[in-house]
Design a protein around this nucleic acid. Structure first.
Lengths: 184, 184
DNA sequence: TCATAATTGTTATACGCCATATCAAATAGC
DNA sequence: GCTATTTGATATGGCGTATAACAATTATGA
């Protein structure tokens, strides 16, 4: 649910920035150790914060950490969660299809599926049509686990992101990031 | 941690570019192979595109790929570039300070510095004050390489991002992503 | 002062993710 | 039918990340 937001400057489609484009380098910095000694003041990050990829990477790491915390009760990684989601929405597909859709290489998907199957969350069955391929399906346990995970993701993880960004910026960021992933 | 690189090209073709600004779930999907056979229509991504972390991760991978392409002439990874930037802005610091600032663990920073030093881009000197630590400094070659890299980043890489997102959203995204990295 | 603790750079090591080559079984194409 | 392709799988290597441990050096406190 939309939690309270403080700075909700960004509009949905046209993202207008509040403060007029500040060209000044604000000399952003980080403290490297405790601020007692004279040599441990702060390091100048330079144009590092103007590098989208730099902050994006750090944000991504934080987000994945938060995901792991929130979904810890059902012990699913982001990758595993995405697999279960896809299996739920697309039952009966084979490994190649699921893996490709998620951008996972087939060799690397084998161990991943092994883990999920060993936990009883999904099954591999040889396809009667094509006995090379495995038909993948969620088990009942997989479905209930996915349901729990989805609730945790929505109520804890995504809620946290919305709380930090504000609902509108959260939505705007979703669209921008999807655009980048698609059009870059 | 900031930067990592890796030259990966994810094989995946996005198909439904569909209307953005859609409130309803547009059943976004991906084609998994050629659209001839009946079983290879398109996979339903479900609420995967509502997961900020999912799209963010993919965007981050694309951005790093683009960075590598653009900065290829000077052969610097995002991580190396961030180190050179920091050394330029903060000469005379030691390895611990630089590494910590970038979120790199000290053990892993050793090999990284080795590479830069072997290429003649920076130097390690034992500090006269504290003979445990190494004073890090850019060489002239390091400075000119950094200058070239900065130009490539600004003129090619960041320009590409601005081209895709538009200047306003690019800046908005920079701020949102920084906020996430900081406050999450 | 001197023994002990802490710090710095470093090595070794292990884990996870990603990528490539390759294989046997099965299927598709001709 | 013979060849080429596909599917799941194995092995392997590279890279990023994480922890433990170590020698040299410095800081700290009794």
């Amino acid at each position: 649910m939309p939690v309270s937001n403080k700075t909700d400057i960004v509009a949905e489609s046209v993202v207008g920035k509040g403060p007029r484009r500040l060209r000044k380098k604000a000399a952003a910095s980080v403290v490297v150790s405790d601020p007692s000694g004279p040599s441990s003041v702060a390091l100048d990050l330079g144009e590092l914060n103007e590098l989208l990829g730099y902050s994006l990477k750090r944000a991504q790491l934080r987000i994945f950490e938060d995901f792991l915390r929130c979904v810890a009760p059902v012990k699913l990684t982001p990758a595993q969660f995405s697999v279960l989601l896809l299996l739920d929405r697309n039952p009966g597909r084979n490994q190649t299809e699921i893996a490709m859709t998620l951008g996972i290489l087939r060799p690397n998907f084998v161990a991943m599926l092994d883990a999920l199957e060993n936990r009883g969350l999904c099954t591999r069955q040889r396809s009667p049509n094509d006995r090379r391929s495995h038909v993948l399906m969620l088990t009942d346990k997989g479905r209930t686990t996915l349901a729990k995970a989805k609730k945790l993701v929505a109520d804890k993880h995504e809620a946290r992101l919305i709380d930090v960004l504000g609902p509108r910026q959260h939505r705007a960021m979703l669209e921008m990031v999807a655009k980048l992933a698609k059009e870059l």
